[in-house]
Design a binder for these strands. Structure first.
Length: 884
RNA sequence: GCCCGGGUGGCGGAAUGGUAGACGCAGGGGACUUAAAAUCCCCUUUUCGCAAGGAAGUGCGGGUUCGAGUCCCGCCCCGGGCACCA
């Protein structure tokens, strides 16, 4: 801590451990001396430790926040003591639905409610003594921040990674508004319980699928929990296969393109299935089938994803179109069905069905009496078969139980030129054949879908986009060389609208004030209700705008435009905030080159596993785009990731208001102090584990602090009389001292906070029994404790006469020579059973030990009258005597 | 259904293949005190035994090993994720 500021650091004057005095005292000192400032351009090595920044909800800090935040704070303080220039920032992910809902209810601007919540969060976080660099605080709703969120969007736009499309949203006719997924409960609106339906609206979509391969590849290079990597992999869902073209009997309709991962089973295809939404369906439907097909398509359309998903567990449905396709490999005529078990959004929305070797096709075929053609003879490996299951099938109203055991891998049969090959050989051979004959090709497919990136809400970043006519866009293009090659367009009201981005100089595009936060009623955001902002004369060169109701300003660059009314989702601001912390005041760029070069990306990122996929995938996507633009130097944003576990209520279930088991950090701080809370959160168990809160357990760590206080401070508030500069520890305590320094350091490096605390408790228990205490030993311990309990550590460090701050001192080193003892404990086993132990000189040989064991009163009886066959000696630990 | 993670005293948890239960909570006994609080000391896996001491024991069943909470195989239960992705 800098003493040069002229701020004289004094402890409090309390005699007891009065945390209510001590904690605010040190907090105010930290506020005035700002010791946690991270310095850009330091010569020290850097360490960047990042917390997932919170959404500042009205409920205040949840106990889960300080859990992860304490862990990172301990590491931040520890690394500073180890000589690192530490960047440990905090900010607010402050756009979001609750603030908007509050605004709708109260009519007040969401910004004011948001700022109040931030104030409360800031107060609570300060009360916990976290060593954040407050000069780097970011707020995603601050125009100075979201200017750069919009700027990054423009980079995506320019690269052709942003487009518009009609996508279904939840629409509630009664409320005349679009609802978020979480606002829909059981097919009804959460507010009012009105029915909701699907409605297509114009949406912004980000082409994250263009990065699917890189997003999988990058996982190799990061130190993340395996489960999180696997979740992302599964979410991206890469699969290799082939695209196959089937001719249609009605040649006028062209070819039917399908995707399959099992081209080897092409000879086993006995029917085709299209998603009900497939564009070829109307053309393929024969007059005789038109009625049932239309009815089925209508029924599917009215189903939500959720319905379709829950139906999946039930029976398959589908109808025949009346048309046939031709199998390119054998000319077989196969019927074309539609069924909602085929999804339009994956592959080509059409499949070849091979009921003999695919469980889903098997079910469908048995339900509708479609033929089954075996093409795999089965193999010998454990994964060559599906599990044998008895399936209930209905054949014309009759219910039957059928055994199913489908070969998945093995030897090809009844497949012409593939016969005799293994399935994996056949996959290669058939793709070669398809390519040579122009009937298909190798293809990789992903489950990952493009990212729906717009919301019909007020409280989000506005899109820096103005919709203009084709002619105006062409005019703008002459002065705006950066416009994408393929314009983003949308057909609306009979005309084609062109998306014209704001020039970067015109950012940020701010939210206009609105009369009401209620949605527009048409499905558009409340922004659609602000004509002066919405309908404008727009200067394509400068980005300036005047309301369209006014006269058109002079000059060629002025165009008639309508602003985009969608706003960005909450993910946007959190996609890049870790970069803004590097250089938060920079008005020229999102982060300066020097800051990016020095700080790079976080060395450690700690946050909940609930963000394993979405936030962490979206942020990686944006980062890779920035990397490809040369805007950031690394390809991956988060080198090392750690998930803290959830803290359950004392009843062992998730904390919730309705259960009344919520722990409020404010209450704990009032009753025990922030230092005790921090220590207890870390002592509860491994950071990554899910663990219940035990209100009684907190007493233990509180007693531990008080115990060490008493060792240092007497009842009069002065130094304890047992403390002196001339005292020395007993040999055992001296050894324990060095063991403790070693273990605490190792445990901190490995993020095992619970065992570090336990070791410190063992050490203090031993110090308590010492006849005299060297002052240096207590100083050293106060320093070791300071990352965990910073106010307490500083208070005692200062009272013990430490110079400066406990945090400014170099981290204690252990002396390996002090760890070696001259005796060791050897455990004696007879035939593997523990029978006794002995303290022996370190130099003892195996032969010495055997002799000691044979004379040992507890061991000898088990050896009596038996012959020693063999001994196993684990050096310094154990001697196992095998007798018979 | 598939993919992960986990099951250890009354409770939270600790144990590079080497003394299972560190540390803490709770409980019992004692010291100090007029008393209480605070603090300190002792006990506290189960079971047999007056004791000394013995036996069993890390979800269940097998296995590898001189030795398994830890490694392998097969189950059961709990938690999380995905879920007709062809």
């Amino acid at each position: 801590m800098p003493q040069s500021d002229g701020f004289h650091v004094k402890p409090t004057d309390c005699t007891d451990y009065d945390f209510l005095k001590i904690e605010p005292h040190w907090q105010s000192i930290w506020e005035q001396t700002r010791p946690f400032r991270a310095e850009n351009g330091s010569t020290k090595p850097k360490y960047y430790v990042l917390d997932m920044f919170p959404y500042p909800s009205g409920a205040g800090l949840h106990i889960g926040h300080p859990e992860g935040y304490t862990a990172t704070d301990i590491l931040a303080r520890y690394k500073r003591a180890k000589g690192f220039n530490v960047l440990h920032p905090i900010g607010w992910d402050a756009f979001g639905l609750p603030a908007e809902q509050h605004a709708v209810r109260t009519g007040t601007h969401p910004a004011s409610n948001t700022q109040n919540n931030i104030k409360n969060f800031r107060r609570q976080i300060r009360a916990l003594g976290f060593s954040y660099d407050w000069e780097r605080e970011v707020d995603t709703t601050d125009p100075k921040y979201f200017r750069w969120t919009q700027w990054i969007f423009l980079q995506l736009f320019k690269k052709g990674l942003a487009y518009v499309d009609e996508r279904p949203v939840w629409w509630c006719p009664e409320l005349r508004t679009v609802l978020a997924n979480e606002e829909v409960v059981d097919g009804k609106s959460e507010v009012g319980g009105f029915p909701v339906e699907r409605k297509n609206l114009r949406q912004w979509v980000l082409r994250i699928t263009a990065y699917a391969e890189q997003l999988i590849d990058g996982l190799k290079d990061v130190d993340w929990p395996d489960s999180t990597k696997r979740m992302q992999e599964a979410w991206i869902g890469r699969s290799e296969g082939a695209e196959v073209l089937f001719k249609l009997e009605n040649a006028a309709l062209g070819d039917l393109k399908i995707f399959t991962t099992r081209p080897d089973t092409l000879f086993g295809c006995t029917y085709m299935v299209l998603a009900p939404e497939h564009p070829l369906v109307p053309g393929l439907t024969t007059d005789a089938q038109r009625e049932v097909v239309d009815a089925y398509r209508k029924a599917t359309a009215s189903k939500s994803d959720v319905d379709r998903m829950s139906d999946a567990a039930k029976e398959k449905t589908g109808v025949f179109t009346g048309s046939y396709a031709i199998n390119p490999v054998n000319g077989a005529r196969v019927p074309i069905w539609i069924a909602d078990y085929v999804l339009m959004g994956y592959g080509t929305g059409a499949i070849m069905a091979v009921p003999a070797h695919d469980e889903r096709d098997w079910d469908f075929a048995h339900l509708f009496n479609l033929p089954v053609q075996k093409v795999i003879a089965g193999g010998s490996g454990p994964n060559d078969w599906t599990a044998t299951t008895a399936r209930i099938v209905r054949v014309g109203g009759e219910v039957r139980k059928v055994d199913m055991r489908l070969a998945l891998e093995g030897e090809m049969i009844d497949s012409d030129f593939l016969d005799g090959k293994t399935t994996s050989e056949a996959r290669t051979a058939i793709i070669d054949w398809l390519e040579q004959n122009g009937r298909g090709k190798r293809r990789v497919n992903y489950k990952l879908r493009d990212w729906l990136f717009s919301r019909q809400r007020y409280w989000g970043e506005p899109f820096p986009i103005v919709w203009v006519s084709e002619a105006d866009y062409a005019r703008a293009a002459t002065v705006r060389p950066e416009l994408p090659k393929n314009p983003v367009t949308f057909v609306e009201g009979g005309g084609v609208q062109y998306a014209l981005p704001l020039p970067e100089v015109a950012l940020p595009l701010q939210l206009p004030d609105v009369q009401s936060y209620l949605p527009s009623g048409t499905g558009e955001s409340p922004l659609a209700n602000v004509p002066a902002w919405l309908e404008i004369w727009f200067n394509a060169e400068t980005g300036e705008a005047v309301p369209a109701s006014q006269a058109k300003p002079a000059g060629d660059a002025w165009l008639r435009g309508r602003r985009e009314t969608n706003t960005m989702p909450q993910w946007a601001g959190s996609c890049w905030y870790y970069l803004r912390y590097l250089d938060p005041q920079n008005a020229e760029t999102f982060a300066g080159k020097d800051a990016l070069a020095y700080w790079g990306v976080p060395d450690l990122y700690v946050g909940g596993a609930e963000h394993a996929v979405l936030h962490l995938l979206y942020a990686r996507f944006w980062h890779k785009v920035l990397f490809d633009l040369g805007a950031v130097p690394q390809a991956e944003p988060f080198k090392k990731l750690f998930h803290q576990g959830i803290i359950l209520g004392e009843d062992g279930v998730k904390m919730s208001k309705t259960r009344g088991n919520v722990v409020n950090p404010d209450d704990i701080i009032r009753d025990y102090g922030a230092d005790t809370l921090r220590l207890y959160l870390m002592f509860l168990g491994p950071l990554e584990a899910m663990k219940p809160w035990n209100p009684k357990g907190i007493e233990g760590v509180h007693r531990f602090l008080r115990k060490f206080w008493r060792e240092c401070i007497g009842e009069d508030g002065k130094l304890n009389s047992r403390v002196s500069d001339s005292a020395a520890l007993t040999a055992d305590a001296e050894k324990l001292r060095h063991e403790t320094i070693k273990k605490v350091g190792e445990d901190l490096d490995a993020m095992r906070f619970n065992t570090a605390i336990s070791q410190m408790m063992i050490y203090v228990n031993a110090l308590q029994k010492e006849p005299a205490l060297p002052r240096i030993v207590l100083l050293e311990f106060a320093q070791m404790l300071a990352p965990f309990a910073p106010h307490f550590g500083e208070e005692l460090w200062t009272r013990l006469g430490g110079t400066g701050s406990a945090m400014a001192a170099a981290w204690p080193m252990f002396d390996p020579a002090k760890l070696v003892a001259d005796t060791m404990t050897i455990v004696f086993q007879v035939n593997g059973k523990h029978r006794g132990d002995a303290q022996v000189p370190v130099a003892s040989s195996e032969a010495d030990l055997i002799k000691i064991a044979q004379e040992h009163p507890k061991v000898a009886p088990h050896l009596a009258g038996k012959a020693l066959k063999r001994t196993i000696y684990v050096k310094g630990k154990l001697l196992n005597l095998l007798v018979a």
